[in-house]
Computed example of a mutant assay.
Amino acid sequence: MRYIVIGLGYFGSSLSMKLTDMGHEVIAVDKDLAKVEMYKDRVTHTVALDASDAQAISTLPVADTDVVLVGIGEDFGASVMATAIFKQLGVKRLMSRAISPLHQTVLEAIGVDQIIRPEQESAERLAKKLEMRGVIDSFDLSEDYNIIEATVPEKYAGMTIAETDFRARYQVNVLTILRNQETRNMFGRSHLKPKVMGVVTGNTIFEAGDILVVFGKIQDIDRLLHE
């Protein structure tokens, strides 16, 4: 997959190097030439440009990129401007870093696909989530076992947990389901917020867009999501 990471601070550089090590193509961007030079041998591509400049961003292969992540931290204005430009360009998946509740609210108003809070999410953990298509969040219990949040595959919508038989077929247990409900932020913009559906049973029916919370080995969960 191809990623564009904006900002080569600690978080952005760590994420860029981890994704590169995983075999992905990464275009890491920063306006600081010294940072670009520092990581040029550790990341697939490094580019020096101002991501708050729409004309400069137009030189990047945005249309052919799977995920754009705006990792700019302390420069609130540059973060919001870069995010808004990428949103206007219609990128496939847009993620942005927030450093405060207000920053998060503004990013929600812009309409990003996912907001990252670095104090809650390490670059290595995020890289693992990006590695598995469909995964929203993950928690490592050991080297082998994980608890994963992932969007339910469309083919299971309308089926019960008993009918899918994930435990027998994949050795994966469904712990609960998160179901999106519409809510509004302080600007009045509507967005979807997941609600925990509590303890599920074999009769619980999956709906399109549900988020599964499952437990199992990472390779088994990957088979469940993509077979």
Rank of each mutant, 00 (worst) to 15 (best):
Y145Q: 13
M81G: 07
G23L: 09
A123E: 00
F206E: 01
V196F: 11
Q181M: 00
K87Q: 04
M1R: 15
R167L: 12
A48D: 08
A109L: 11
K217E: 15
D137P: 12
A34T: 14
M1C: 13
L107P: 06
R97H: 03
V112W: 05
P118S: 07
I205H: 07
I115M: 00
E37S: 14
R223M: 08
P194C: 03
Q88P: 13
V106C: 06
I110L: 04
T176F: 03
Y3P: 14
M38K: 15
M186G: 10
E143S: 10
A157S: 15
R223W: 05
F139T: 13
M132V: 15
D64S: 12
P153D: 01
D21G: 00
T160Y: 02
D75F: 06
D64H: 12
L130T: 04
A127T: 00
T59H: 02
V152M: 06
T204M: 02
R93D: 00
A56S: 12
V68Q: 05
S79L: 00
G12H: 11
I115N: 00
G90K: 01
L130K: 09
Q219L: 02
V43G: 04
M22L: 08
L107K: 10
I211A: 06
D53W: 05
A109G: 15
V70Y: 11
D140W: 05
H191T: 07
I161R: 05
Q55M: 08
G23Q: 08
F139W: 05
I4Q: 10
V26I: 09
E74H: 02
M22W: 09
V172F: 01
G90L: 05
I6L: 11
L89K: 02
H24W: 11
A34S: 15
Q104N: 13
E25V: 15
V47E: 08
S122E: 10
I136A: 10
F11Q: 09
